[in-house]
Write a protein that binds this DNA or RNA. Sequence first.
DNA 1: CCGGATGTTGACTGACTGGTCAACTACTCG
DNA 2: CGAGTAGTTGACCAGTCAGTCAACATCCGG
Lengths: 200, 200
Amino acid sequence: MGRISDSRERIVRASARLFLSRSYGAVSVDELCAAADVRKGSFYHFFPSKAELAKAVIDLHTQGLLAQLSAASGASAAERLRGVADAVGAIQTRFESKYGRIVGCPFGNLAAELSTLDDSLREHLAAAFARWEREFAVLCRQAQADGALRDGVDPDRLARSLLALAQGQILLAKVEGLSAAGIPAALRDLIDVHLREGEA
Amino acid sequence: MGRISDSRERIVRASARLFLSRSYGAVSVDELCAAADVRKGSFYHFFPSKAELAKAVIDLHTQGLLAQLSAASGASAAERLRGVADAVGAIQTRFESKYGRIVGCPFGNLAAELSTLDDSLREHLAAAFARWEREFAVLCRQAQADGALRDGVDPDRLARSLLALAQGQILLAKVEGLSAAGIPAALRDLIDVHLREGEA
DNA sequence: CCGGATGTTGACTGACTGGTCAACTACTCG
DNA sequence: CGAGTAGTTGACCAGTCAGTCAACATCCGG
């Protein structure tokens, strides 16, 4: 069945790194290849285009995100919700120490730059966001079932707000050059204000 | 004092349009010049670089944003706060009908794409966001002074959350191809949940 | 040990990139 | 009306861009 190789994986990992530290458009395929120690012909053996590579990078980040989210634990749904707020912060903190500064959300960065340019890439990103939102929604519905949410709070809308707020806070931290430390705090604020008075 | 001209303004307006409908990186200086009906030499007479043009585009959008925000009225601070939520929605709705789809926030788009690439552009964007945040903060503090906010709510943190949530919701609407109609509703949710029970 | 599949290579393309320049034109103020 | 300033022009540059290709290497199952 022919030769085996980890070239594809090297390309995706190097691209994830370079896209984060700069941007999709600012990194050329040549540079990607050099960073992955692969020649251009090999690149186009694995990916029909630079845009298809971006989808693979999105999938890699989705894996990492889901792993981090599933590590969030807690006795109550409300506590697990705070746990995912911290998980998002943990990812950003990891990026921050790896790149020396906040570099933004991998999904958000690509979404802002590319979703008006490539419709199939936009849909791929939309699916990644939907996956992420679903993780939040499960916990929000559990919190509601536990009676932890204030009256009138729609758990699905709360989940979406959490996702949107995370995106916005990460973007602001990036543009203002702040640290990642403030991000989970802001998300916890949003969670807490939706909990019934007296809920831990 | 030499010749007068509206070339500079034509360049900025055409660039604002093209950056929104595609992205900064996806539009070449040549295309910008063609859209503004200006030759390349003239472009570089007004702007030392493409990045400096981006700053002028940011300033143009800041003008528009402040105009729209100042149009928000209401009897109480809480109502004016809902008014700015609607103002943000109105801007996005205007973009949506102009471009046929949600194209994102002009500031957010540039921030995601460029703030890791050009530090002076990043600072320019940070200033624009700070200006925007200040508008929100004034109203949040007024609402607090009116006793409209729940106990323990920090008006400055609320203002920042509003800005972040707006960015996130706009980004999600863009990537999912939704309409702008849901954006003010989500912002109003955030405002309402921070108001004391029984506050209009 | 061989045949087919998988993976690798590097030279190549042609279009396009942001930016430069020197010559030129039109305008306004004194 | 003359001079200086503001604006215009189009040709030009060297580098880079994403993507192609045909020939070649390596490996595994049979």
